[in-house]
């Protein structure tokens, strides 16, 4: 008999799901958006994606090499950040600015906080916001697809000059209008959502609560179903709700927390869009959501099986005398 047996604590088997596997599914879910962007805006979209992905992976690799940390590139999380960041840029973005965005995302937002699992905000989101504030003219230099209808040939559906009740819902749904790479095509975002849900990467709480609350609040403010649907499909709302707000690290852990987080983001987005100084509010709403996440994790809990009201439990705990647990699973 072999005397070098392995002795470990139970359980002795593991699920096949890995971090890299989950990130791989996210990349697969981003594929429809990348295809839609290439169709709508041309081949430069792919170039932009390639450059940001390369920059993100390179920054992460170099940083960990410099700090003599284990190289985490194999978990694909930097690739996901790269693709999402590219999806948040207009197609004409100069490549050197894209590289700055990657630096902000990977080094400043992710690695300075301790790498994967420790960042308090979504790296790609902070990259987007920094570029948006630092390079505003370039970030809003949208390119308009040749096929766009007259109303949308020179403005995004959310621009103040556009009469949203006259915009064709189909054009908005298919993404035939100006905007960032990933966010114009609602169809592709929904396909991505379907892939993520099918693979069990995310559950429906966050996207559904964001989209549902944004839709309801817009409906209440504008009173028009058409406008509410147009707003739902345009700007970063759909892309953000599916790919950015659902980032594991920066969203709450419990179902209840996710629901509150989603409704909060939906509400803030609508408030910024209708009462703030910007046409677009999604990125800032998600950032605020990221910030309240640690509060939600601290105070919003599941109810354990057999849990009783705190006063009773507290009193009982005072006299409590731990006995050997009888329970056991087979």
């Amino acid at each position: 008999m072999d005397d070098r047996l392995l002795v470990t604590a139970s359980p002795h088997i593991r699920d096949n799901t890995t971090t890299a596997g989950l990130m791989g599914w996210v990349l697969a879910a981003l594929a429809p958006c990348a295809v839609a962007a290439t169709i709508l805006f041309g081949w430069r979209a792919l170039l932009l994606i390639a450059v940001t992905v390369f920059a993100c992976v390179a920054f992460e690799y170099l940083w960990c090499l410099l700090l003599k940390k284990p190289i985490p590139v194999g978990d694909l999380s930097a690739c996901v950040t790269g693709v999402i960041l590219a999806m948040n840029m207009p197609v004409g973005m100069p490549l050197w600015i894209a590289v700055i965005g990657a630096f902000v995302a990977i080094i400043i937002t992710k690695q300075l906080w301790g790498g994967i699992g420790f960042n308090f905000a979504n790296p790609a989101l902070v990259g987007r916001i920094v570029l948006f504030l630092g390079f505003a003219p370039r970030m809003t230099a949208y390119v308009y697809p040749a096929a766009a209808s007259d109303a949308l040939a020179g403005a995004t559906p959310l621009a103040a000059s556009v009469d949203r009740s006259a915009v064709s819902l189909l054009d908005v749904f298919l993404g035939v209008h100006g905007g960032m790479l990933g966010e114009t095509c609602a169809l592709a975002c929904l396909a991505g959502l379907a892939i993520l849900l099918y693979a069990g990467v995310i559950d429906a709480w966050i996207p559904c609560s964001i989209l549902g609350s944004a839709f309801v609040f817009t409906l209440l403010i504008t009173g028009s179903l058409h406008v509410a649907l147009v707003e739902l499909c345009s700007g970063g709302l759909l892309f953000g709700a599916v790919f950015m707000a659902t980032d594991y690290v920066t969203s709450p852990l419990t179902a209840k927390g996710k629901l509150i987080y989603g409704v909060f983001i939906g509400l803030v987005t609508v408030l910024i869009r209708h009462f703030g100084g910007m046409n677009e509010g999604m990125s800032f709403a998600i950032l605020l959501g990221n910030i309240i996440t640690c509060l939600l994790n601290q105070y919003v809990h599941q109810t354990p099986l057999g849990w009783r009201k705190p006063q009773k439990a507290k009193k009982a705990a005072a006299e409590k005398e731990p006995a050997a647990a009888q329970g056991g699973a087979r």
Binding site: T19, L253, N297
Partner: peptide, 28 residues
């Protein structure tokens, strides 16, 4: 089959919370 994979950093996906039959929050 006996050699188990090496642990990597927690990505806070919440799967342990979803899975816990007692409704606890293992990660927390």
């Amino acid at each position: 089959k006996a050699v188990l994979p090496e642990p990597s950093p927690c990505i806070r996906c919440g799967r342990c919370i979803k899975g816990c039959p007692m409704g606890l929050e293992p990660v927390n």
